[in-house]
Each structure stands twice: as structure tokens, then as C-alpha cells.
Write a protein that binds this DNA or RNA. Structure first.
Lengths: 113, 113
DNA sequence: CGCATATTCAACCGATTGGTTGACGATCTG
DNA sequence: CAGATCGTCAACCAATCGGTTGAATATGCG
């Protein structure tokens, strides 16, 4: 029953993992380089990266013996949408969501998706 | 060292707590009424509410013997700002909305979509 | 007062989390 | 090939999490 939102929010709830995401915002990085600024073992960082990857927040590609980590910001989209439903569309109930969805059908789809 | 962001994201990482927030979006509720639809003890819900309150996502005011719970959506702002730094996520994204409806509200997919 | 209602507290439990260390497989390099 | 580097795996640990139950604390009511 654990939804994607569970996993994404849980992944974001750790400051080390958020800092890793911030680092990856600037450029792709190897696991060892991700670990370098942190005062913890490489294995610990490797676990954090696995959690971020499981949440879809990063992707990892192995080239040679180096595993490159790449930010995947689209994974934040569902979480962002969930949060927006509280601020911007108040009051939001199920009917409002459905009405909103119907209204959005007339808008062009983002081609980058 | 645990930042406000840690606490907010951790609070959001539980489906019971997200459902509580969704319920409170419609109206303020007493603790007992919040607990009613869930298949768990009142004490468990009381704990969940304490976690939401600690994150600032709800406020609780006792009137008589009833403790009223009120959504405080402003607490989502810091988290939202953090996420926006990774790219602008249109809150009105159709795909994300479909995912949201399917996962969180357990609605059948509209065949016309 | 005496009882029901609303909520929390305290103790406990099993599962998960975030970290460690040491061994290991895989890959590059001299 | 031998040795160094990259990263994960496995076992372990203390702390936290999400739940339970039963007792306790307020508060409202007849």
C-alpha cells in the first residue's frame, strides 16, 4: 500500500539526501565524489543514493567502475502537485479535483513529459 | 540539527497523515472524528496528530473536552519552496494529477482521458 | 455526585532507519 | 599479473517509528 508519495517524501525527509540532491543540481557526480563532503562512510552514502534512486529522484548509470548519479527532478512533480492542492486550490474536495481535472483537459500537454 | 524541512517531509511521508490533512482540508475536526474512518486506535491517531502539529501542518485548540484540529497549509510553504528550486512544477500538470487521483484517492481512471 | 465522553499518557512491541565495519566483486592501470 | 580504486553487500547496532493496550486526566451532563 505504500504509494510513490510515501517513498518520495521519506527520501526528502533526510538532510543528507536533500544535500545530495542539491549537489546533483549542479552536475552529475560519481558516488565517491558525492560522498566526499560528508562525514560518514561511503557505504552510508551508497545507501542514501539507493534510497534516492528508489524514489526516482536520481538515476544511476555505471560506466566502467564509476557509477554516475543524475538528478531526476521530475520525480518531485507528484509531491509538488500534492502540496499545491493545499495552498492554492482551497477549499479542495474530491469534486473540486475532478472539476479541475476536467478543466485541464483543454490545455496543451507539456511536450517535455 | 533536524531542520523544519526534515520534520515536515517526515510528517508527509505517511499515508494516514496525508489522508488526515486531506480530511482537514474540508473542515476542522475533533480528534475522535478524525480517527473514525481509520482502522486503528484513537491513541494512534492522537500520535499522528501530534506529529502533524509538531510539523506545524495543523493546529489544535481545545474547547471544552473537545480538541479541534485545523489545517495550517502555510507550513507547506518552506517545503514547496525547497522543491521549486529543482525546477518549476506546474501544479496543473495533467499526468501528475492522474497519478495523484489514482494513488491517493483510489478513483477509477476516467476512460475519456 | 456519578457516569459517560474526549483525549492523552505510559509501557510495550516488532519493524524500519541511519549509521558502522569488514569483506567482497568488478574494473582500471602499471 | 599485481595492486589500487569504485562501489556494494552482509552483519551488526542504537534509535526511532507506527502500532497496541490499559490506565489516567479532563470535561460535560443528568
Amino acid at each position: 500500500m505504500t504509494s510513490a508519495l510515501d517513498i518520495v517524501f521519506a527520501a526528502l525527509a533526510d538532510p543528507t539526501r536533500r544535500e545530495i540532491l542539491r549537489m546533483l543540481l549542479e552536475d552529475d557526480m560519481a558516488v565517491t565524489d558525492v560522498a566526499e563532503p560528508f562525514a560518514m562512510s561511503l557505504a552510508a552514502i551508497s545507501k542514501h543514493l539507493a534510497i534516492l534512486a528508489a524514489a526516482g529522484l536520481i538515476s544511476q548509470e555505471k560506466r566502467g567502475r564509476v557509477k554516475w548519479c543524475k538528478l531526476e527532478p521530475d520525480a518531485l512533480r507528484a509531491a509538488s502537485v500534492w502540496m499545491q492542492s493545499f495552498g492554492q486550490f482551497e477549499p479542495v474536495n474530491l469534486d473540486a479535483f475532478e472539476a479541475f481535472l476536467a478543466q485541464e483537459l483543454h490545455l496543451p500537454t507539456d511536450p517535455e513529459l
